[in-house]
Computed example of a mutant assay.
Amino acid sequence: MLKVVNRLKPASKRLVFAACLVAAGACTPIFKNHGYVPPADQLAEIKVGVDTRDSVVETIGAPSSAGLVKDSGFYYVRSRVRHYGPKRPEVVSRELVAISFDQRGVVRNIERFGLEDGYVVVLDRRVTESSVQNRGFLRQLLGNIGNFNPANIPGAN
């Protein structure tokens, strides 16, 4: 019986060592990078008051997002997120380069914002809600039968 216990000790040591390695690996932070911000040397090639939207796209590439208004700017956003075990992901750094244009489409200003400057750039994604509520195709198609009113037809008086 003593020989069996002596043989299990090295195996149990290996098992404990493997468990410690797995536990240490689970606590290693994982970093994920999202987005693109052009480097400073490429941004230096853009001349305020000279370059246009097309020349900016040729020089540094298409933006990750653009303004909703036609004459607004280009926005290049890069985020670095740390995932650490069971904790919530944490934004470690976020950098935003905003290039604004005038009404003619010429570069008016180039600005750089980030967490390290004290600016918190909150990215928000909004999704329009659908008015369709868990209805199948036929139920949607046939749902208005019985709700027909001839008085609602345009031109019928």
Rank of each mutant, 00 (worst) to 15 (best):
K3P: 01
V4Q: 12
V5K: 07
A11L: 12
S12C: 13
K13Y: 09
K13P: 00
R14V: 12
L15G: 08
V16T: 09
A18T: 06
A18S: 10
A18M: 06
A19N: 08
A19I: 09
C20D: 10
L21S: 07
V22W: 05
V22T: 10
A23Q: 03
A23R: 03
A26Y: 05
C27P: 00
T28M: 14
K32M: 13
K32C: 07
N33L: 11
N33C: 09
H34D: 15
Y36G: 03
V37K: 00
P39L: 09
P39K: 06
A40D: 14
A40G: 04
D41F: 11
D41G: 06
D41P: 00
L43I: 02
A44V: 02
E45P: 02
I46C: 03
K47D: 04
V48A: 03
V48S: 01
R53D: 01
R53W: 03
S55E: 11
V56A: 07
E58T: 02
T59D: 01
A62V: 03
S65M: 13
S65K: 08
S65A: 10
A66K: 14
A66F: 08
A66P: 00
G67I: 00
S72I: 12
F74N: 11
Y75D: 08
Y75V: 07
Y76T: 03
V77A: 11
R78N: 06
S79I: 06
S79C: 02
R82I: 03
Y84K: 14
Y84N: 12
G85S: 13
R94K: 10
E95N: 06
E95P: 00
L96D: 02
V97T: 07
V97I: 10
A98Y: 01
S100L: 10
D102V: 06
D102E: 08
R104Y: 12
R104E: 15
V107E: 01
V107Y: 01
R108I: 02
N109T: 12
N109F: 12
E111Q: 13
R112Q: 13
R112L: 09
R112I: 12
G114A: 10
E116M: 10
D117K: 11
D117H: 05
V121A: 06
V121S: 04
D124W: 14
D124S: 11
D124G: 08
R125F: 13
R125I: 09
R125M: 11
E129F: 03
S130P: 00
S130K: 04
S131D: 15
V132R: 03
Q133I: 14
Q133V: 15
R135D: 10
R135A: 14
G136R: 09
L138C: 06
L138V: 04
L138Y: 07
L141Y: 04
L141W: 06
L142Y: 08
L142S: 08
L142M: 10
G143S: 03
G143I: 04
N144D: 13
N144W: 11
I145M: 02
G146F: 04
F148I: 12
F148M: 09
P150D: 02
A151P: 00
A151T: 10
N152W: 05
N152T: 05
I153V: 15
P154S: 02
P154A: 02
